[in-house]
Design a protein around this nucleic acid. Structure first.
Lengths: 167, 167
DNA sequence: GAACGGGTACTCGGATAACTATTGTCCGAGTGACTGTGG
DNA sequence: CCACAGTCACTCGGACAATAGTTATCCGAGTACCCGTTC
C-alpha cells in the first residue's frame, strides 16, 4: 500500500540521465550492453541493468538481447525529457497524495459531508509546488543537457564514442 | 551516510501542516498536548509527538511540559511557510545531491582535471527544478492556508476552537 | 487567613523496536552470430 | 564457392536477498498545579 507517494529521487535517476546523454553521442544503431555502461561510471552492473530495463518499459531506451545487443535510445534525444526519465525510474506520478486525515477522527465531523467535497487546501498547496517541479523537469531534454556538456567540454562526445568503440 | 538527499515528503509533513492550521485558530497562549492533536485526526499520538518535537527544534512551535502544557505556534502564522514545516520534519535541505559519478571510472579520465571544476550539468538541471519546488512552498504560509480553509468553510475555526476547549 | 512545602499527575524528549522501500545480486530464457558441413 | 543447420556465447529480464530509512512505540526527566500543613 502506498498512501503517500514519494518525491524521492532515487539514485538510479542520476545514473539513467548520464547514461542517456552518453548514448545520445553514439551512432543511433549502436547498442551498448549494460555492463559496459556501468563500467564507464563504476556502477553496479546488475543494478544499472535493472534501471535501464525500467527505461525500456517506458520507451526511453530500446533493448536488444544476444551478441552485439544492448541498449540504445528509444527515440530522438530531443524527445526525451528529464521528467520521462524520472517517472520511468521512480514510477510515482504524484509525490504528495492527500491521506484525507482531515476527515478522520473528530475533525471529520466538523466539516461535515459538504467538506468532503471541497478539495483539501493542504494537498492543493503541495500539488502546486510539485507541479512547478515537474514542469521544470519536463522542459529539459536529454539533447539540451548533451549540448550543455559539449559546450563545456567540446571533446567529450568524441572521447565517449571512442571509449565505447574500444573492444 | 547520505549521498543522495531525498525529496520525499514524509507523511508527518501533512500531519504537521494540519496541526499548525488548527493551532493557528486557538488562542495564542493556549497550549494543546500532542495526544489531543493526534486524537483530532486519528493519528498515532506518540509519533505525532515526535514530529511536533521536530517542529519545536525549528522554532515553528514552542513546547511546554507539565499540566496545562503542550504545543502552540512558535510565531505568527504569517511567518510560517510550508517550506519551514517541510524542512523541519524532513530535515533535508537538498533533494538532489550530485554523486559525482561522471568523475568515477573511465568517464573521469575524459573530462580531465578541468572537467572537475565545471559544474555537473545534470545536477544543475535537477537543482533548478528543485528550486522551483522550494520557491512554491516558501511562498505559502500557514495563515494563507488557514484563510483558504475558512473561506471554504467559515464555521471551521469556531468548531475547532470549541472542540479543543472540551475537557 | 495567608504562605509554604511536598506530593502528584501530566507533558514533552529522546532512546528503542518493527516494518517498508530501496539497493544490490543472481541465474534462467531468449537471441543473434559464428563455424563447420554439405551441395 | 554458396547455402544451411547446429552450436555457442552473449545479453536482457525478472525473481531473490541485504540494507537503509521511515514509521511506530515506550518509558524516563522535568514541570506546573493542587492540597495539606503551619504560622
Amino acid at each position: 500500500m502506498r498512501n503517500v507517494q514519494d518525491m524521492k529521487l532515487r539514485e538510479g535517476v542520476e545514473w539513467a540521465v548520464h547514461c542517456c546523454i552518453n548514448l545520445s553521442w553514439l551512432a543511433p544503431d549502436r547498442a551498448v550492453p549494460a555492463a559496459r555502461l556501468a563500467e564507464f561510471h563504476n556502477l553496479p552492473a546488475a543494478y544499472l541493468n535493472k534501471q535501464l530495463h525500467a527505461l525500456g518499459r517506458a520507451g526511453v531506451v530500446s533493448a536488444r538481447s544476444g551478441p552485439r545487443g544492448g541498449f540504445r535510445l528509444g527515440r530522438e534525444p530531443e524527445k526525451i525529457t528529464l521528467m520521462d526519465v524520472a517517472v520511468a525510474i521512480d514510477g510515482s506520478a504524484q509525490a504528495f497524495l492527500c491521506t484525507g486525515i482531515r476527515h478522520q477522527g473528530p475533525a471529520g465531523g466538523i466539516a461535515g459531508p459538504a467538506g468532503r467535497r471541497t478539495p483539501c487546501t493542504v494537498a492543493q498547496a503541495f500539488s502546486h509546488a510539485e507541479l512547478a517541479w515537474r514542469h521544470q523537469l519536463a522542459s529539459r531534454t536529454i539533447a539540451d543537457l548533451a549540448d550543455a556538456v559539449r559546450q563545456a567540454n567540446p571533446a567529450a562526445p568524441d572521447h565517449v564514442r571512442s571509449w565505447f568503440d574500444r573492444t
